[in-house]
Nucleic acid binder design. Structure first.
Lengths: 342, 342
DNA sequence: CTGTTAGCGCCTTCAA
DNA sequence: TTGAAGGCGCTAACAG
């Protein structure tokens, strides 16, 4: 690998001059610039970011940590983040925590060693060790949380407007004539899940319905778990609910599997609306009505926030919590109810 | 950010000693080790990888470039690569080229500046500028290609066994009773596509069928394009084929869309088998029979190959081209034909 | 075992 | 506009 010194030699100038033409911070005469550039090409020289970073104490690298790259929501988010970062000349190093607090800890440490200048974080779903994050911020590395907003820590965040997004979905079911609407959320330990539940309640109230505790269920964030919980609940009820609302993708998928096993059709036997797209295209059935999060926007917005913090030396103490609106993609699973009900 | 010097000071030892306890290359007495570790914790010290890399000329970082993070195949591949890399203490920086040769060029340059020690590459689908890649290898940075195998360049690669994978799918259709089987491939410029086409032909021959040119179609690698080509072909034929085989996911999706628009059902009106899973779960219909590539394995195997090259200084000149077998996931769209045919 | 020290490649004053 | 030189944080000899 060629070094700046070799380039300087070949061009017959000093390393300083080469550095100047590369960074463009100091003017260099056209003639010299040309010889230098020729040398760069001839040697296939690529400035050593490592050395540059050491010198400038700036890596121009951001970290982004997600729980699972294979959940479609996250690659979309990453794509949004990457676009925003590149626009400002930053690179992204993406890591996935497998939703494990342990791994998250290791990776956080790794990212710090790599001297990322800022972190986009989707926290792992266990009890988030806030001290890890706090230490990062103490060290002057800005952190913006996405999607999941951790509690007990003042931190910038960007996520969907949980409450109104859930309201959107549930209100739609009510409007379609469904009355006994159950909800299956993720762990109540997650703030987002609680806010989605709150949105559900608000929608019911606005629709003149009262919520009953035994229609409010929760499970872990895995499809299998959700399927098991749902099946059990349905089995132990005399009359099943008219519709089910789920607050995220994996759980929605689990419910769908359970429905199949229970030989229940949607919407014929039960109405269904879920957070997050369950499949990649509209042409598959059952066509599920979904509350769609603006994944790319979330990634982009979070990155902008992060870069702002990085680039303004001023340590602004005010926390920003951006909430982006969701949209509703209406499909078959929430078709208006025609049967007679109370 | 604390430095090694501060740690040394607090622990009352030399930087050398601190370095020794960190790297573990030189034994340090238990007592000193303990004080040093205490200092590290107290200062929240994280070794500066940037400085270390500069000194050792090793970044322990691999690059991986894919055309599109939102195609499910690639995140799976990345996951496999990441696991394999982490096992050996390497990190991955993932970038996506948007399938643009231009962007690929920029990113290759960026990765070189970042001093990655090896590259896992899925080439962008235009005319791959092999010189870019060649220069990389000349610079001593090993490259392993995944999925798409570029031509006109001797390079290690890991991908599915294109030919036999296609054979698998087509033979299955034949066995199910289909006779006039059309194929829609991606651009013939891609070697993989040509090999899949060859597999199709082989399967036909083995089944005692002859292939006819007007049942061999190709389109760009985008769903829209595939849909358009398929519709046009179907429209201009007097008798449509009994089945269609597509050689990758986006194209398969396109055909599915076209079928819907044409009001053709599968398998009732036309049998259908495609490369790559079209949806995330089995419970959606139409349930399409697919040739499934071992995505994670491809990523893992490629990484192992790459690391082997990195860690053996010996510049072994022999090229390895690993081909992993695909499996067939049989679903409804290839149900045995019951109608009478020739 | 422990300490000392010379760079790794680059950018950035500072002088010329 | 150009060149010379210090030092970023760390590791790897080497010396003690």
């Amino acid at each position: 690998m060629a070094t700046i010194k070799q380039v300087a030699e070949m061009a017959g100038v000093s390393v300083g001059t080469v550095s100047h033409v590369i960074t463009g911070t100091v003017p260099v005469s056209g003639a010299l610039r040309a010889t230098v550039e020729a040398a760069i090409r001839k040697l296939d020289y690529h400035p050593n970011h490592v050395a540059r970073s050491l010198k400038t104490a700036k890596t121009r690298t951001l970290g982004i940590m997600v729980p699972d790259l294979t959940i479609p929501f996250y690659p979309q988010m990453i794509r949004g983040a990457e676009k925003a970062a590149r626009k400002k000349g930053y690179s992204l190093v993406a890591v996935n925590s497998d939703d494990s607090v342990e791994r998250q800890k290791d990776l956080l440490s790794l990212l710090r060693s790599q001297r990322i200048e800022g972190l986009l974080l989707v926290v792992a779903s266990g009890l988030t060790p806030t001290d890890q994050i706090a230490r990062m911020m103490d060290a002057g590395i800005p952190v913006v949380c996405l999607d999941r907003v951790p509690e007990k820590i003042a931190i910038d965040s960007v996520s969907v407007e949980d409450g109104s997004a859930a309201e959107l979905g549930v209100a739609h079911l009510i409007e379609a004539g469904y009355r006994r609407i159950a909800i299956l959320t993720g762990p109540p330990a997650l703030k987002n899940e609680r806010r989605r539940l709150a949105g559900y309640k608000r929608a019911l109230e606005a629709g003149g319905l009262t919520y009953v505790d035994n229609l409010i269920w929760s499970s872990q964030l895995r499809a299998d778990d959700a399927a098991a919980v749902f099946e059990e609940k349905i089995r132990e009820m005399k009359t099943p609910p008219e519709a089910i609302f789920t607050t995220n993708g994996p759980i929605g998928l689990g419910v769908l599997r359970a429905l199949k096993r229970l030989r229940l059709r949607t919407p014929e036997d039960i109405g269904f609306v879920t957070f997050d797209e369950l499949t990649v295209d509209d042409l598959f059935t059952p066509a599920i009505t979904t509350v769609v999060q603006p994944a790319e926007e979330i990634g982009a917005k979070a990155t902008e926030l992060l870069l702002e913090q990085i680039e303004t030396t001023a340590h602004s103490p005010k926390r920003v919590n951006v909430r982006l609106p969701a949209s509703l993609k209406i499909r078959d699973s929430s078709r208006p109810l025609t049967r007679k009900h109370t």
